[in-house]
Design a protein around this nucleic acid. Sequence first.
DNA 1: CTAGTTGCAAAGAGTTTGCATGGCG
DNA 2: CGCCATGCAAACTCTTTGCAACTAG
Lengths: 137, 137
Amino acid sequence: MVGEKHPYKTRQRQAVSDFLSAHRDRYLSVDDVFGLMRAEGQGVGRTTAYRTLESLATEGCVAKVVAPGGGESRYRLIDPERRDEGQLVCLSCGRAIPLDCEMLPEFYQHVEGEHGFKIDFSRTVLYGLCESCRKGD
Amino acid sequence: MVGEKHPYKTRQRQAVSDFLSAHRDRYLSVDDVFGLMRAEGQGVGRTTAYRTLESLATEGCVAKVVAPGGGESRYRLIDPERRDEGQLVCLSCGRAIPLDCEMLPEFYQHVEGEHGFKIDFSRTVLYGLCESCRKGD
DNA sequence: CTAGTTGCAAAGAGTTTGCATGGCG
DNA sequence: CGCCATGCAAACTCTTTGCAACTAG
């Protein structure tokens, strides 16, 4: 299970963790989690979905970001195996693509050093169009 | 006036444009616009404030940015004179800061050329901690 | 048994929509 | 005059909170 820092291990918390784990390539809204889990017969209350996702985000297991236009928050399990900085999300297909790029820390440090702003990449998403959507559309 | 693509030129639209123009250095919430304009005797309806700001953002004259938790949106007139593409938002104080940085287009082009992903900076916000919050906290 | 967890219902903040009125061209 | 813009009130969306019932340890 993902967030071990909790006193109680409940069915709901386990189920949300498993669900996130099964959808690592997407940022999911609370309603995605609520609705899809219910459809799979692994339902949890909406309030519980909010609380569990929020708590996993605070623990640092989950990246929480806001949708491009505003509106709902979205969550994605952080992969501890990879240096999980830099997430690209395609505005067309919605897929999250990890950006493994040597220029990223450079950019990161430049903004911190020259502009005094420390970017938090677990809260930041670069929105745009992925390669296949640019060709397809 | 800022957004010339509209059939009618109304007092309200003019007033909102002028107001944004007089506060180019700040990101304003709808309530800032609504409240401050009213205080100055240049009031517009709240609905009109929403509609005008949204329309200016769609036209590309105005940058729209959402608060870290997904709270209110904030708007700022884009300065065509500057490389005005990056939007920083502080996770602690919520302040939005324009990023005028020569490295930004470089980074942008690198990600497009080398990683095949075309970042849309009008939809992207970099979240993190601003200078004063890093010192203060 | 005790403290943390759940989930319904209600409250809350921010935003959008329906619709009658008013103003631009 | 026709069409679009305005603005009030109501509806809507997303999220948080109150609270009684439940459950892991």
